[in-house]
């Protein structure tokens, strides 16, 4: 029938896209009960839900979604180091959202225009991600062009996460993407938002140049282990648990 994939989905690519969505979804879920205002709590939970929906579909392409999410070790995850970074203050969460949602928007646009195992999902998710990017951009403007304190925190957050952005444009096996064009679109979009927010694009070193590799090779930062332990412990302690 017409829901069979055109070709077998490439595993590395499905894990890269799926793990990005899964891990960021979990991080955003950590805001539940802690967000600065109720509306924002609901917004972050809704964005997390969209990402979880993507993750379930992507991981199911290459295996059992629960086994992949709950029973893999840290080194087997292929997500970007950016998405595993702790929530920090609200500015750091927004900076992470701005960098990642802009990346996902342009990446999914390219995938939606192609013809691969990811075309259907990308065409659907790109419309949702446009709202995520809109949300992040508006908060960046509000914080960057807000009080002296909010400006300072937003600038600090954008600078602190900058080092993790280079990895986003390293080619992923099995994804037919023009990575150079993706990086150009991303940089232009992020720089435009930051400029309107009276901030500047950071210019420090980025992870793309790290020879040891990064999240796409299974090398993760220190905060990822504790996050994974919390995410997986219920499933591992009580196999088959459900409600």
């Amino acid at each position: 029938m017409n829901d069979a994939p055109v070709t077998a989905p490439p595993r590395a690519a499905a894990l890269a896209l799926g793990d990005d969505a899964l891990v960021l979804s979990h991080r955003l879920g950590e805001w539940a009960g802690h967000a600065p205002v109720l509306e924002e709590e609901v917004a972050l939970a809704n964005i997390a839900l969209d990402l979880l929906g993507q993750a379930r579909i992507l991981l199911s392409l290459v295996g059992d979604e629960d086994e992949l999410a709950y029973l893999r070790e840290e080194r087997a995850f292929r997500n970007l180091q950016l998405v595993e970074q702790p929530n920090g203050d609200f500015a750091q969460t927004i900076a992470r959202q701005l960098y990642f949602s802009t990346y996902q928007l342009f990446l999914y646009r390219q995938l939606a225009a192609g013809d691969s195992a990811f075309t259907g999902l990308a065409a659907k998710a790109v419309k949702e991600v446009a709202y995520h990017q809109d949300h992040a951009a508006h908060w960046t403007l509000r914080l960057g062009d807000g009080t002296a304190e909010s400006h300072e925190r937003m600038a600090r957050a954008c600078g602190a996460l900058w080092r993790y952005t280079g990895e986003m444009f390293e080619p992923v096996e099995g994804l037919e993407v023009d990575w150079r064009a993706l990086e150009d679109s991303w940089r232009e979009s992020v720089a435009g938002v930051l400029e309107r927010a009276t901030l500047t694009l950071p210019d420090g070193p980025r992870s793309g140049a790290w020879r040891a590799g990064a999240g796409r090779q299974g090398l993760h930062t220190e905060p990822f282990g504790p996050m994974l332990a919390e995410m997986q412990h219920l499933h591992r302690s009580h196999p088959g648990a459900s409600w």
Partner: peptide
């Protein structure tokens, strides 16, 4: 539940409307 992701509008199922 079965989830299809790779379907193309250009190649409908045999019994499509």
């Amino acid at each position: 539940m079965v989830t299809g992701t790779g379907s193309r509008p250009a190649s409908p199922a045999p019994a499509a409307p």
